[in-house]
């Protein structure tokens, strides 16, 4: 073992940038898709229509009971089987994460919806709004606002978890660092670099969430 040689960081940057961009894209798509689908799942879970709430509940419980890395591998194998064509590791990762995170965002949105007092729904309905209008204009905006810090914290976890796409060879930040490390025979230095990038992004996001929590606390 020789000494550390961090000069590999310079030439690695274009690869690292591409990997990071994919990681960010994956996080953003899975977050927005996950929140939208998760909200629909939450509405289904809270629905008085029994079959709807049972199906949504089963979906959420299943997703939350399987290790993410297995879901990633499983989707990677199953999606080509279902569609008949291989979709590639990146697309597979995006679909998987959206579907998986939806289960977690669902539970957050569900408690968010339940945190809105019953009187708010009464007031909306007393003004003549339909149930759907009351949900869209009165309940969901408040649920989102109440849950914003929790949703963002879940997104930070999601950002870290995207490194698991490594398992199917999608070219994310970790994979880029790994490839460069192998090419230059400097794996440790490259792992350190990727860890620093994950840390810097997650830590600043956490600080931002903490600030946000203070502001939300004042408004409430």
């Amino acid at each position: 073992m020789g000494e550390f040689d961090f000069s590999v960081w310079g030439p690695s940057l274009p690869f690292i940038r591409d990997g990071l961009l994919f990681t960010l894209r994956l996080t953003l798509i899975a977050m927005s898709g996950g929140i939208v689908i998760g909200t629909l799942l939450a509405l289904a879970r809270l629905s008085p229509v029994k079959p709807l709430s049972l199906v949504a509940g089963a979906y959420v419980d299943t997703m939350r009971s399987i290790p993410l890395v297995m879901v990633i591998l499983w989707f990677f194998l199953v999606i080509p089987f279902l569609t008949g064509t291989p979709v590639g590791a990146e697309t597979s990762a995006i679909i998987t994460f959206t579907a998986f995170e939806a289960a977690f965002y669902c539970e957050i949105m569900r408690s968010g919806i339940q945190s809105v007092p019953r009187g708010q729904v009464w007031a909306a309905q007393a003004l003549g709004l339909t149930q759907t209008q009351a949900m869209v204009h009165v309940v969901l905006p408040q649920a989102l606002r109440n849950m914003l810090p929790v949703l963002l914290t879940q997104t930070i976890v999601l950002f870290q978890d995207t490194s698991l796409v490594y398992a199917i060879g999608a070219k994310d930040l970790l994979k880029a660092a790994d490839v460069v490390g192998k090419n230059y025979n400097r794996p440790v230095e490259m792992i350190v670099l990727s860890a620093l990038i994950y840390f810097a992004i997650c830590f600043s996001l956490s600080l931002a969430v903490r600030q946000l929590q203070k502001r939300v606390a004042i408004v409430r």
């Binding site: 007092p117 009187g119 007031a123 909306a124 007393a126 003549g128 204009h137 009165v138 408040q142």
Partner: peptide
């Protein structure tokens, strides 16, 4: 059509229930 009927009946609640957002 309950929403339509309620639109013509004003209601004021104990806890105001203004929409805080």
């Amino acid at each position: 059509d309950l929403p339509r009927l309620r639109a013509r009946v004003g209601m004021v609640f104990q806890h105001f229930e203004l929409f805080p957002h």
